[in-house]
Design a protein around this nucleic acid. Sequence first.
DNA 1: CCAAAAGTGTTTTAGTTACACCCATGG
DNA 2: CCATGGGTGTAACTAAAACACTTTTGG
Lengths: 254, 254
Amino acid sequence: MSDQTGQIPESAGEDPRAYERPSVTVDLALLSVREGALCVLLLRRDRAPFLGAWSLPGGFVRIEESLDEAAMRILRDKAQMSNVFMEQLFTFGAVDRDPRARVITVAYYALVEAGRFDEALKASVELSLFEILVPWADETGGAVAICSAEGETEPLAFDHAEILGMAVKRLRGKLDYTPVGFELLPERFTLRQLQEVHEAILDRRMNKPAFRRRMLDKGGLQATGERESGVTYRPAELYRFLEPNAGPGQNQEG
Amino acid sequence: MSDQTGQIPESAGEDPRAYERPSVTVDLALLSVREGALCVLLLRRDRAPFLGAWSLPGGFVRIEESLDEAAMRILRDKAQMSNVFMEQLFTFGAVDRDPRARVITVAYYALVEAGRFDEALKASVELSLFEILVPWADETGGAVAICSAEGETEPLAFDHAEILGMAVKRLRGKLDYTPVGFELLPERFTLRQLQEVHEAILDRRMNKPAFRRRMLDKGGLQATGERESGVTYRPAELYRFLEPNAGPGQNQEG
DNA sequence: CCAAAAGTGTTTTAGTTACACCCATGG
DNA sequence: CCATGGGTGTAACTAAAACACTTTTGG
């Protein structure tokens, strides 16, 4: 019942001034596939609560920016990135998810190629890379654990393990009927690389010829005529992804 | 830069007191299938903006309730319903989606059997029923139109046409790999009724024997031994849905 | 020539559809 | 006994998987 700035209610018969407003944040799960493993960029909290725990980059939504704009700003400020695939995931609004105050967070996930992932790591001393461990073989959409390069599992702040779990679930669900997989590869890539991305995300080995044909039959892949270099065996052809019609994903919010 | 009640920031280095907070609402798309058509319950706005236009039931999220709780409260207050399938859909946060103030809305959709739909209509003079028209044959997830019983198309308030469009898209996407279809039928139903629900949602006629076997092979359907009554032809067997393991859907937010 | 991975052809399988048909009920 | 929709069997089709195989490169 605080005296906030007066604004007019949206819906039938309610006065927003009568209610205290929650804070609204955006949290961002920045994912990539590196060396056959699904990874996430996290930063270490430098204050209570969850001091020292790892957390997703996030920040408050400003009054003059949309949710998508807030997510892009956070991506830019925290990871020096722009022009990456990003999509709204889910909104987490449990009353006690932040022990200090009522904070509703709109979670986003972003997908980037491993190279840009490494650039972000070098550019920021705050960011660290973690492998995502999905313990129970399949699909509950629940929380996941993270694992550092040294093989230690580490705690996550707030409900961020749950957010990450939902990001993995969404990514798995979209992988075979949308072109999200290509967002995790450079502009030119071999079919083997594409298969490694799929195998890392779904955590399942696949048959090479079957995967190959399934991808080529689906359309959207264009052979460049170029070949990979620096390998000691027969170099594979490089492909490019051409969206069939209109761009991939990027959900709207008006 | 208003002086709101002081609360402590969630994420690294930001002070929420420095920013004006948006209002947060929940809007609810209450869907059913009636006479072979996908329908929605709407209420007519009795004030500006969009005075006289149709809108989804909604309301502000209170500081002491979760988003799911807010959605259930709105369902109870506006439609006198409880215990229905409900799931978070998407959060709409365009800066100008409400011309009066910054309002972020977390959209939910709910699925109910046609009988309970009609009860809600009778219990409330404010509510009206509309058929949902998805004009462009397939899947952009964009806005839809609504059509009254008299066949008139009517305007929707705010971005509610877009919210409804996303609800239809989600429902279509979930129909064949989750048990959402059963939420739109009474406890006992014939396979024909189940097929009609699927046909209404996907807007596509299907082959009877193929549909029948697909459903029975998927498991979860139990023949009751009872038959429908009041028909002039051979009465069909009534089936019941038994969730394979754990309840259907109902996404968590902590 | 050898190792290693690229890339292709053929068979098998599983899931779905299409179509023809019989069955049960009310009038 | 006829009309109507319920319910079943069989064949055809399609997408995917498994497997065996040939090809191309670096060393």
